[in-house]
Write a protein that binds this DNA or RNA. Structure first.
Lengths: 192, 192
DNA sequence: CGATTCTTTGAAAACAGTCAATCTGTGTGG
DNA sequence: CCACACAGATTGACTGTTTTCAAAGAATCG
Protein backbone atom coordinates (compact mmCIF):
# COMPACT_ATOMS: atom_id res chain seq x y z
CA UNK A 1 0.00 0.00 0.00
CA UNK A 2 2.87 2.32 0.76
CA UNK A 3 4.47 1.55 -2.61
CA UNK A 4 2.02 3.73 -4.47
CA UNK A 5 3.09 6.63 -2.31
CA UNK A 6 6.75 5.83 -2.82
CA UNK A 7 6.25 5.83 -6.60
CA UNK A 8 4.42 9.11 -6.38
CA UNK A 9 7.20 10.72 -4.38
CA UNK A 10 10.09 9.50 -6.46
CA UNK A 11 8.35 10.72 -9.60
CA UNK A 12 8.06 14.20 -8.09
CA UNK A 13 11.50 14.73 -6.53
CA UNK A 14 14.62 12.94 -5.35
CA UNK A 15 14.33 11.51 -1.89
CA UNK A 16 16.88 9.41 -0.07
CA UNK A 17 15.77 6.02 1.16
CA UNK A 18 15.96 7.31 4.70
CA UNK A 19 13.66 10.19 3.84
CA UNK A 20 11.18 7.92 2.13
CA UNK A 21 11.22 5.64 5.13
CA UNK A 22 10.65 8.59 7.43
CA UNK A 23 7.72 9.90 5.43
CA UNK A 24 6.14 6.47 5.25
CA UNK A 25 6.71 5.73 8.92
CA UNK A 26 4.69 8.81 9.83
CA UNK A 27 1.73 7.65 7.71
CA UNK A 28 -1.26 5.69 8.93
CA UNK A 29 -2.75 3.37 6.28
CA UNK A 30 -6.52 3.10 6.31
CA UNK A 31 -9.18 1.37 4.24
CA UNK A 32 -12.53 3.01 3.71
CA UNK A 33 -15.63 1.33 2.39
CA UNK A 34 -17.86 3.17 -0.05
CA UNK A 35 -19.86 5.84 1.79
CA UNK A 36 -17.58 5.70 4.81
CA UNK A 37 -16.50 9.06 6.20
CA UNK A 38 -13.02 10.39 6.76
CA UNK A 39 -14.45 13.50 8.46
CA UNK A 40 -17.99 14.58 9.16
CA UNK A 41 -18.86 18.25 9.33
CA UNK A 42 -18.70 19.42 12.91
CA UNK A 43 -15.75 17.18 13.77
CA UNK A 44 -12.16 18.30 13.60
CA UNK A 45 -10.36 17.08 10.50
CA UNK A 46 -7.31 15.47 12.10
CA UNK A 47 -5.74 14.12 8.94
CA UNK A 48 -4.50 14.88 5.51
CA UNK A 49 -4.95 11.95 3.16
CA UNK A 50 -3.04 10.65 0.17
CA UNK A 51 -5.24 8.47 -2.01
CA UNK A 52 -3.66 5.13 -2.90
CA UNK A 53 -6.69 3.79 -4.74
CA UNK A 54 -10.39 4.56 -4.93
CA UNK A 55 -11.93 8.03 -4.70
CA UNK A 56 -13.34 10.53 -2.24
CA UNK A 57 -15.13 13.83 -2.21
CA UNK A 58 -15.06 16.91 -0.01
CA UNK A 59 -18.46 18.53 0.17
CA UNK A 60 -20.62 20.84 2.21
CA UNK A 61 -24.31 20.60 2.96
CA UNK A 62 -26.36 23.78 2.69
CA UNK A 63 -29.45 24.85 4.63
CA UNK A 64 -31.71 22.98 2.18
CA UNK A 65 -29.78 19.74 2.80
CA UNK A 66 -28.28 20.08 -0.67
CA UNK A 67 -24.74 18.76 -1.05
CA UNK A 68 -22.10 20.75 -2.95
CA UNK A 69 -18.84 19.12 -3.91
CA UNK A 70 -15.73 21.23 -3.45
CA UNK A 71 -13.17 18.65 -4.45
CA UNK A 72 -12.75 15.16 -5.80
CA UNK A 73 -9.71 13.02 -5.14
CA UNK A 74 -8.60 9.85 -6.89
CA UNK A 75 -5.32 7.91 -6.91
CA UNK A 76 -2.29 10.10 -6.24
CA UNK A 77 -4.36 13.06 -5.10
CA UNK A 78 -4.37 14.66 -1.71
CA UNK A 79 -7.46 15.55 0.24
CA UNK A 80 -8.34 17.12 3.57
CA UNK A 81 -10.60 19.81 4.95
CA UNK A 82 -7.79 22.32 4.76
CA UNK A 83 -9.27 24.94 7.06
CA UNK A 84 -10.02 22.49 9.86
CA UNK A 85 -6.73 20.64 9.42
CA UNK A 86 -4.82 23.89 9.61
CA UNK A 87 -6.66 25.54 12.48
CA UNK A 88 -7.86 22.56 14.52
CA UNK A 89 -11.40 23.96 14.48
CA UNK A 90 -14.42 21.85 13.53
CA UNK A 91 -14.75 21.20 9.82
CA UNK A 92 -17.64 22.70 7.93
CA UNK A 93 -17.16 20.18 5.15
CA UNK A 94 -17.36 16.39 5.12
CA UNK A 95 -15.19 13.87 3.31
CA UNK A 96 -16.45 10.45 2.33
CA UNK A 97 -15.43 7.63 0.03
CA UNK A 98 -17.17 7.30 -3.33
CA UNK A 99 -15.78 3.81 -3.82
CA UNK A 100 -13.91 1.38 -1.59
CA UNK A 101 -10.75 3.34 -1.02
CA UNK A 102 -7.28 3.09 0.49
CA UNK A 103 -5.59 6.15 1.93
CA UNK A 104 -2.49 7.10 3.83
CA UNK A 105 -3.09 9.55 6.66
CA UNK A 106 -0.88 12.03 8.45
CA UNK A 107 -1.89 13.83 11.60
CA UNK A 108 -1.17 17.53 11.83
CA UNK A 109 1.72 16.86 14.19
CA UNK A 110 3.29 14.21 11.95
CA UNK A 111 2.78 16.38 8.95
CA UNK A 112 4.44 19.42 10.47
CA UNK A 113 7.28 17.36 11.87
CA UNK A 114 7.94 15.52 8.65
CA UNK A 115 7.94 18.78 6.71
CA UNK A 116 10.45 20.21 9.11
CA UNK A 117 12.70 17.19 8.92
CA UNK A 118 12.51 16.39 5.23
CA UNK A 119 13.23 19.61 3.40
CA UNK A 120 12.62 18.19 -0.06
CA UNK A 121 9.17 17.23 1.09
CA UNK A 122 8.57 20.67 2.47
CA UNK A 123 9.50 22.19 -0.87
CA UNK A 124 7.23 19.75 -2.69
CA UNK A 125 4.36 20.59 -0.38
CA UNK A 126 4.85 24.30 -0.97
CA UNK A 127 4.76 23.72 -4.70
CA UNK A 128 1.59 21.67 -4.45
CA UNK A 129 -0.03 24.27 -2.22
CA UNK A 130 0.75 26.95 -4.78
CA UNK A 131 -0.67 24.91 -7.61
CA UNK A 132 -3.70 24.08 -5.54
CA UNK A 133 -4.38 27.76 -4.99
CA UNK A 134 -4.01 28.45 -8.71
CA UNK A 135 -6.45 25.65 -9.51
CA UNK A 136 -8.88 27.09 -7.01
CA UNK A 137 -8.66 30.55 -8.56
CA UNK A 138 -9.11 29.14 -12.03
CA UNK A 139 -12.16 27.22 -10.96
CA UNK A 140 -13.63 30.30 -9.34
CA UNK A 141 -13.02 32.27 -12.50
CA UNK A 142 -14.73 29.61 -14.58
CA UNK A 143 -17.68 29.62 -12.21
CA UNK A 144 -18.28 33.37 -12.29
CA UNK A 145 -17.55 33.84 -15.98
CA UNK A 146 -18.57 30.75 -17.94
CA UNK A 147 -21.86 28.99 -18.60
CA UNK A 148 -22.61 25.59 -17.13
CA UNK A 149 -22.06 24.05 -20.54
CA UNK A 150 -18.62 25.58 -20.93
CA UNK A 151 -17.71 24.50 -17.43
CA UNK A 152 -18.76 20.96 -18.16
CA UNK A 153 -16.59 20.84 -21.28
CA UNK A 154 -13.66 22.27 -19.38
CA UNK A 155 -14.19 19.69 -16.68
CA UNK A 156 -14.21 16.85 -19.17
CA UNK A 157 -11.09 18.21 -20.85
CA UNK A 158 -9.26 18.74 -17.58
CA UNK A 159 -10.21 15.45 -15.94
CA UNK A 160 -10.80 12.93 -18.71
CA UNK A 161 -10.29 10.08 -16.22
CA UNK A 162 -12.80 11.49 -13.84
CA UNK A 163 -15.97 12.06 -15.65
CA UNK A 164 -16.55 8.50 -16.79
CA UNK A 165 -15.99 7.28 -13.29
CA UNK A 166 -18.19 9.68 -11.36
CA UNK A 167 -21.96 9.48 -11.68
CA UNK A 168 -23.53 12.48 -13.35
CA UNK A 169 -25.18 13.88 -10.26
CA UNK A 170 -21.81 14.21 -8.51
CA UNK A 171 -20.34 16.12 -11.41
CA UNK A 172 -23.42 18.33 -11.43
CA UNK A 173 -22.90 19.01 -7.76
CA UNK A 174 -19.26 19.90 -8.44
CA UNK A 175 -20.19 22.23 -11.29
CA UNK A 176 -22.94 23.91 -9.32
CA UNK A 177 -25.92 22.93 -11.48
CA UNK A 178 -28.83 20.55 -10.99
CA UNK A 179 -28.53 16.97 -12.29
CA UNK A 180 -31.33 17.63 -14.75
CA UNK A 181 -29.51 20.59 -16.22
CA UNK A 182 -26.33 18.59 -16.65
CA UNK A 183 -28.27 15.77 -18.22
CA UNK A 184 -29.68 18.23 -20.77
CA UNK A 185 -26.27 19.70 -21.42
CA UNK A 186 -24.96 16.23 -22.16
CA UNK A 187 -27.80 15.51 -24.50
CA UNK A 188 -27.44 18.84 -26.19
CA UNK A 189 -23.72 18.55 -26.87
CA UNK A 190 -23.45 14.80 -27.23
CA UNK A 191 -20.48 14.77 -24.87
CA UNK A 192 -20.60 11.81 -22.52
CA UNK B 1 5.06 55.27 3.16
CA UNK B 2 6.93 52.39 4.70
CA UNK B 3 5.41 53.14 8.10
CA UNK B 4 2.06 51.65 7.16
CA UNK B 5 3.84 48.41 6.37
CA UNK B 6 5.78 48.56 9.61
CA UNK B 7 2.56 48.99 11.56
CA UNK B 8 1.01 46.12 9.73
CA UNK B 9 3.92 43.83 10.48
CA UNK B 10 4.28 44.67 14.15
CA UNK B 11 0.56 44.10 14.63
CA UNK B 12 0.89 40.61 13.15
CA UNK B 13 4.06 39.31 14.80
CA UNK B 14 7.20 40.34 16.65
CA UNK B 15 9.98 41.47 14.40
CA UNK B 16 13.34 42.88 15.44
CA UNK B 17 14.26 46.29 14.14
CA UNK B 18 16.89 44.66 11.97
CA UNK B 19 14.29 42.36 10.44
CA UNK B 20 11.90 45.22 9.79
CA UNK B 21 14.70 47.15 8.15
CA UNK B 22 15.58 44.16 6.01
CA UNK B 23 12.01 43.62 4.86
CA UNK B 24 11.59 47.29 4.06
CA UNK B 25 14.92 47.56 2.29
CA UNK B 26 13.83 44.85 -0.13
CA UNK B 27 10.64 46.72 -1.01
CA UNK B 28 10.13 49.09 -3.91
CA UNK B 29 7.64 51.90 -3.21
CA UNK B 30 5.43 52.87 -6.11
CA UNK B 31 2.57 55.25 -6.74
CA UNK B 32 -0.17 54.33 -9.16
CA UNK B 33 -2.74 56.68 -10.60
CA UNK B 34 -6.31 55.53 -10.96
CA UNK B 35 -6.59 53.11 -13.92
CA UNK B 36 -2.85 52.53 -14.02
CA UNK B 37 -1.78 48.93 -14.37
CA UNK B 38 0.49 46.92 -12.12
CA UNK B 39 0.37 44.01 -14.58
CA UNK B 40 -1.43 43.54 -17.85
CA UNK B 41 -2.53 40.11 -18.98
CA UNK B 42 0.14 38.60 -21.21
CA UNK B 43 2.98 40.16 -19.24
CA UNK B 44 4.81 38.40 -16.46
CA UNK B 45 3.73 39.54 -13.01
CA UNK B 46 7.10 40.39 -11.48
CA UNK B 47 5.85 41.72 -8.17
CA UNK B 48 3.79 41.04 -5.14
CA UNK B 49 2.24 44.22 -3.76
CA UNK B 50 1.32 45.41 -0.30
CA UNK B 51 -1.29 48.16 -0.44
CA UNK B 52 -0.38 51.21 1.65
CA UNK B 53 -3.38 53.23 0.55
CA UNK B 54 -5.89 53.19 -2.26
CA UNK B 55 -7.30 50.08 -3.92
CA UNK B 56 -6.71 47.68 -6.78
CA UNK B 57 -8.39 44.80 -8.49
CA UNK B 58 -7.21 41.57 -10.09
CA UNK B 59 -9.43 40.61 -12.98
CA UNK B 60 -9.60 38.58 -16.15
CA UNK B 61 -11.19 39.43 -19.45
CA UNK B 62 -13.23 36.74 -21.17
CA UNK B 63 -13.79 36.09 -24.86
CA UNK B 64 -16.69 38.56 -24.93
CA UNK B 65 -14.45 41.31 -23.52
CA UNK B 66 -16.30 41.02 -20.22
CA UNK B 67 -14.22 41.67 -17.12
CA UNK B 68 -14.48 39.43 -14.07
CA UNK B 69 -12.95 40.47 -10.78
CA UNK B 70 -11.12 37.78 -8.86
CA UNK B 71 -9.87 39.93 -6.02
CA UNK B 72 -10.00 43.38 -4.52
CA UNK B 73 -7.25 44.84 -2.37
CA UNK B 74 -7.35 47.90 -0.14
CA UNK B 75 -5.03 49.17 2.60
CA UNK B 76 -3.11 46.39 4.34
CA UNK B 77 -4.03 43.78 1.75
CA UNK B 78 -1.70 41.89 -0.53
CA UNK B 79 -2.22 41.44 -4.22
CA UNK B 80 -0.45 39.77 -7.12
CA UNK B 81 -1.24 37.44 -9.98
CA UNK B 82 -0.19 34.46 -7.90
CA UNK B 83 0.22 31.99 -10.72
CA UNK B 84 2.41 34.25 -12.83
CA UNK B 85 4.40 35.47 -9.84
CA UNK B 86 5.08 31.92 -8.76
CA UNK B 87 5.89 30.40 -12.14
CA UNK B 88 7.31 33.36 -14.06
CA UNK B 89 4.89 32.63 -16.91
CA UNK B 90 2.74 35.37 -18.49
CA UNK B 91 -0.23 36.39 -16.37
CA UNK B 92 -3.72 35.65 -17.57
CA UNK B 93 -5.11 38.29 -15.26
CA UNK B 94 -4.52 42.02 -15.03
CA UNK B 95 -4.15 44.25 -11.99
CA UNK B 96 -5.02 47.92 -12.03
CA UNK B 97 -5.66 50.69 -9.55
CA UNK B 98 -9.26 51.66 -8.77
CA UNK B 99 -8.11 54.87 -7.08
CA UNK B 100 -4.82 56.67 -6.78
CA UNK B 101 -2.84 54.10 -4.87
CA UNK B 102 0.46 53.55 -3.10
CA UNK B 103 2.01 50.11 -2.95
CA UNK B 104 5.18 48.43 -1.82
CA UNK B 105 6.54 45.89 -4.27
CA UNK B 106 8.80 42.89 -3.89
CA UNK B 107 10.29 41.02 -6.82
CA UNK B 108 10.20 37.24 -6.74
CA UNK B 109 13.90 37.14 -5.90
CA UNK B 110 13.62 39.64 -3.05
CA UNK B 111 10.55 37.89 -1.78
CA UNK B 112 12.15 34.46 -1.70
CA UNK B 113 15.33 35.80 -0.18
CA UNK B 114 13.57 37.78 2.50
CA UNK B 115 11.44 34.78 3.41
CA UNK B 116 14.55 32.68 3.75
CA UNK B 117 16.32 35.23 5.89
CA UNK B 118 13.48 36.40 8.11
CA UNK B 119 11.87 33.27 9.50
CA UNK B 120 9.10 35.10 11.31
CA UNK B 121 8.09 36.60 8.01
CA UNK B 122 8.17 33.21 6.36
CA UNK B 123 5.84 31.86 9.02
CA UNK B 124 3.53 34.84 8.62
CA UNK B 125 3.44 34.35 4.89
CA UNK B 126 2.56 30.68 5.29
CA UNK B 127 -0.26 31.62 7.59
CA UNK B 128 -1.58 34.20 5.16
CA UNK B 129 -1.33 31.75 2.29
CA UNK B 130 -3.35 29.21 4.23
CA UNK B 131 -6.02 31.74 5.09
CA UNK B 132 -6.09 32.94 1.53
CA UNK B 133 -6.76 29.41 0.32
CA UNK B 134 -9.55 29.00 2.85
CA UNK B 135 -11.12 32.27 1.73
CA UNK B 136 -10.92 31.11 -1.86
CA UNK B 137 -12.64 27.82 -1.04
CA UNK B 138 -15.33 29.59 0.91
CA UNK B 139 -15.98 31.95 -1.94
CA UNK B 140 -16.20 29.08 -4.39
CA UNK B 141 -18.66 27.32 -2.12
CA UNK B 142 -20.78 30.44 -1.89
CA UNK B 143 -20.73 30.78 -5.66
CA UNK B 144 -21.88 27.25 -6.42
CA UNK B 145 -24.38 26.98 -3.59
CA UNK B 146 -25.91 30.38 -2.87
CA UNK B 147 -28.06 32.78 -4.85
CA UNK B 148 -26.72 36.11 -6.05
CA UNK B 149 -28.74 37.85 -3.36
CA UNK B 150 -27.29 35.73 -0.56
CA UNK B 151 -23.81 36.28 -1.94
CA UNK B 152 -24.33 40.02 -1.99
CA UNK B 153 -25.41 40.04 1.64
CA UNK B 154 -22.46 37.89 2.61
CA UNK B 155 -20.17 40.25 0.74
CA UNK B 156 -21.58 43.27 2.53
CA UNK B 157 -21.29 41.51 5.88
CA UNK B 158 -17.74 40.33 5.22
CA UNK B 159 -16.42 43.57 3.74
CA UNK B 160 -18.42 46.42 5.24
CA UNK B 161 -15.63 48.85 4.34
CA UNK B 162 -15.55 47.74 0.79
CA UNK B 163 -18.98 47.94 -0.63
CA UNK B 164 -19.54 51.65 -0.03
CA UNK B 165 -16.26 52.39 -1.65
CA UNK B 166 -16.53 50.29 -4.79
CA UNK B 167 -18.99 51.19 -7.53
CA UNK B 168 -21.80 48.73 -7.94
CA UNK B 169 -20.68 47.37 -11.27
CA UNK B 170 -17.37 46.25 -9.78
CA UNK B 171 -19.08 44.38 -7.00
CA UNK B 172 -21.39 42.79 -9.57
CA UNK B 173 -18.35 41.69 -11.52
CA UNK B 174 -16.87 40.22 -8.36
CA UNK B 175 -20.06 38.37 -7.48
CA UNK B 176 -20.51 37.03 -11.00
CA UNK B 177 -23.78 38.76 -11.88
CA UNK B 178 -24.70 41.58 -14.24
CA UNK B 179 -24.85 45.14 -12.92
CA UNK B 180 -28.57 45.26 -13.62
CA UNK B 181 -29.18 42.19 -11.50
CA UNK B 182 -27.21 43.60 -8.60
CA UNK B 183 -29.06 46.89 -8.91
CA UNK B 184 -32.35 44.98 -8.64
CA UNK B 185 -31.10 42.98 -5.69
CA UNK B 186 -30.25 46.20 -3.91
CA UNK B 187 -33.62 47.66 -4.63
CA UNK B 188 -35.37 44.51 -3.57
CA UNK B 189 -33.60 44.15 -0.23
CA UNK B 190 -33.01 47.81 0.50
CA UNK B 191 -29.38 47.04 1.36
CA UNK B 192 -27.06 49.71 0.04
C1' DC C 1 -22.04 73.58 -17.68
C1' DG C 2 -20.81 69.47 -20.45
C1' DA C 3 -18.85 65.01 -20.34
C1' DT C 4 -17.95 61.00 -18.22
C1' DT C 5 -19.14 57.45 -15.28
C1' DC C 6 -22.37 55.03 -12.75
C1' DT C 7 -27.08 53.43 -11.67
C1' DT C 8 -31.75 52.37 -12.48
C1' DT C 9 -35.74 50.70 -15.04
C1' DG C 10 -38.65 48.11 -18.40
C1' DA C 11 -39.61 44.43 -21.58
C1' DA C 12 -38.33 40.29 -23.86
C1' DA C 13 -35.58 36.26 -24.31
C1' DA C 14 -32.50 32.81 -22.57
C1' DC C 15 -31.38 29.96 -18.95
C1' DA C 16 -31.61 27.00 -14.98
C1' DG C 17 -34.33 24.99 -11.24
C1' DT C 18 -38.24 22.20 -9.56
C1' DC C 19 -41.49 18.56 -9.58
C1' DA C 20 -43.07 14.38 -11.18
C1' DA C 21 -42.92 10.55 -14.04
C1' DT C 22 -40.45 7.20 -16.58
C1' DC C 23 -36.52 4.58 -18.12
C1' DT C 24 -32.15 2.11 -17.52
C1' DG C 25 -28.91 -0.86 -15.75
C1' DT C 26 -27.08 -3.44 -11.70
C1' DG C 27 -27.11 -6.45 -8.25
C1' DT C 28 -29.38 -9.24 -4.55
C1' DG C 29 -32.24 -12.61 -2.52
C1' DG C 30 -35.68 -16.04 -3.21
C1' DC D 1 -32.80 -17.74 -13.20
C1' DC D 2 -36.20 -14.51 -12.33
C1' DA D 3 -38.27 -10.77 -9.81
C1' DC D 4 -37.61 -6.99 -7.43
C1' DA D 5 -35.40 -3.16 -5.40
C1' DC D 6 -32.37 0.51 -5.95
C1' DA D 7 -29.46 3.99 -7.68
C1' DG D 8 -28.79 6.69 -11.49
C1' DA D 9 -30.32 9.08 -15.80
C1' DT D 10 -33.59 11.12 -18.72
C1' DT D 11 -37.66 13.74 -20.13
C1' DG D 12 -41.62 17.04 -20.11
C1' DA D 13 -44.12 20.84 -18.30
C1' DC D 14 -43.83 24.62 -15.49
C1' DT D 15 -41.83 28.26 -12.64
C1' DG D 16 -38.57 31.43 -11.43
C1' DT D 17 -34.32 33.86 -12.03
C1' DT D 18 -30.84 36.17 -14.71
C1' DT D 19 -29.26 38.18 -18.89
C1' DT D 20 -29.66 41.17 -22.63
C1' DC D 21 -30.80 45.27 -24.93
C1' DA D 22 -32.19 49.82 -24.90
C1' DA D 23 -33.16 53.96 -22.71
C1' DA D 24 -33.12 57.22 -19.33
C1' DG D 25 -31.94 59.07 -14.76
C1' DA D 26 -28.32 60.43 -11.03
C1' DA D 27 -23.86 61.72 -9.63
C1' DT D 28 -19.25 63.40 -10.10
C1' DC D 29 -15.55 66.01 -11.96
C1' DG D 30 -12.96 69.05 -14.64
Amino acid sequence: MVEAFRNYLTAKASFTDAELAQLEAAAIPRKLKRHQFLVRSGEVCHYIAFVVCGSLRLYRTDEHAEEHILRFAIENWWITDAESFRTGLPAVGSIDALEDTQVLLWSKESWDRVKQEVLTFNALENQLAGRNLDAQVNRLYATISHTAEERYHAFVAAFPDFYRRMPLHLIASYLGVSRETLSRIRKHTGLY
